[in-house]
Design a protein around this nucleic acid. Sequence first.
DNA 1: TTATTATATTTATTAGTATAAATAGTGTGA
DNA 2: TCACACTATTTATACTAATAAATATAATAA
Lengths: 253, 253
Amino acid sequence: MQDIKLATPKRIKRADQIVESVKRWVAINNKQPGDRLPNERELMEQFDCSKGTVREALKSLEVQGLISIRTGPNGGAVLERVPYEKASELLRNFLHFEQPSGPEIYALRTLIEPEIAALATPNLTPEDLTRLADLVEQCRAEPQTFEERMAQRIAELEFHVLLAQRCGNAMLAFIGRFLNDMIRDLVIFKKSALPEQREFSCANLDYHQQLLEAFHTKDAARARQLMHEHMKSAEHFNRELEGQLNQHFLTGN
Amino acid sequence: MQDIKLATPKRIKRADQIVESVKRWVAINNKQPGDRLPNERELMEQFDCSKGTVREALKSLEVQGLISIRTGPNGGAVLERVPYEKASELLRNFLHFEQPSGPEIYALRTLIEPEIAALATPNLTPEDLTRLADLVEQCRAEPQTFEERMAQRIAELEFHVLLAQRCGNAMLAFIGRFLNDMIRDLVIFKKSALPEQREFSCANLDYHQQLLEAFHTKDAARARQLMHEHMKSAEHFNRELEGQLNQHFLTGN
DNA sequence: TTATTATATTTATTAGTATAAATAGTGTGA
DNA sequence: TCACACTATTTATACTAATAAATATAATAA
């Protein structure tokens, strides 16, 4: 009977105007994380609006991850570097309705992981290499319980996340981390994403081991090649993962 | 003197609790875009809180793109499929502080565009092919003014956006569209992103023309190969685009 | 029938008030 | 001198009530 109206919203709401003003203020004056916004009372005066409207605007900026709000002396709204977790959460909202399938996620991962590995190779510090070696070591033992197998699978993914964080390309780093996070949540909340095959784990372990060697010798080309093979191998094992992943993105569990 | 405090926020705010409840409600009951939330009065009663708190929660959901709010009879909060534009805006907030460089964006594009072209090939309808041909045609004439050159560059990017929308992989589609949108904004707001070279435009035109033929013959492998060469060619021309793109993501202009 | 007007419903905004949280500064005792 | 508790101040958080704005629907008039 009654259709959903599509008329575009007309008058721009006061709170949204304030949000835009703040964003412009940040961009034009090159404000940095840690810089403070005026307190609510001053904002009320500056924008000549009520407390509720200011609160609505601040809330909007907080949801977007651009500010954090604290009480007490020296509290108030502080500009924040948008955390990865926030960007990730908001992208998940989007994907809730797009409902990408497991193979779709793996397809994208296959494309970018080799490049990530190659780019990260020269950037890895001795500490990073130690951390990577630790993660590989965690996967060496034969898992006895379900929890152990899950922990190993997560350690495998951590290996990839660290590489993404070191690849030196902000876009690639974000997407690489995001994909691995999604797969990790699949591992945690869907057993179907945990291939039973021992061959699968062994293959992964072997590739990670070889990658580690390539990183030690700073051989980016070999790292790319190995990662490519690794992804192709995993793709084969993950082919069964055909189900849709709905009901999962919004709540994160 | 006064450092910014880093202590994590403590008590979960009432409004955020409501947001989480609504998200769970959506996920668990598999609510679809168009489904309505209770009106503000009912929400006040259900969550036993004031109107202001309800409004704050609704505002949060609106900012996240999950609902739209309309006044009047049959107004109120309606569940929305998070639009691409919203996800894009929020990701830009994140990237404002990450400040990816032009070459970083092109590097990622080089990775995914060939796959997008290959995946899209079997999905392109006759209407799509017509649209793509139109876009190619727009780029054929020698541009006389700056505006014409800009329009052609944007038509080139539209070509890629349409392919991304048809690739059938939600993740790839989003990222492909997002990258091209960012490049488009660069073209519009930074002349530096508009290579003067006539060779550049001719090369692009040629590749798009050849791609069109591959699409007509449904030759996905050839489309992938052509797009790969296209990206490598563009990469060469865009190598000069070294500057950071700051001051650009937050406001979109 | 058609166009206009009225009205009922719902959000949007404002104002005022009160409460709770956080912390800098002060004071106290060891 | 140092550690600890207290207090006062700053600030956000929450609630109530009232009015304004928007708009779908119904009623009315041409």
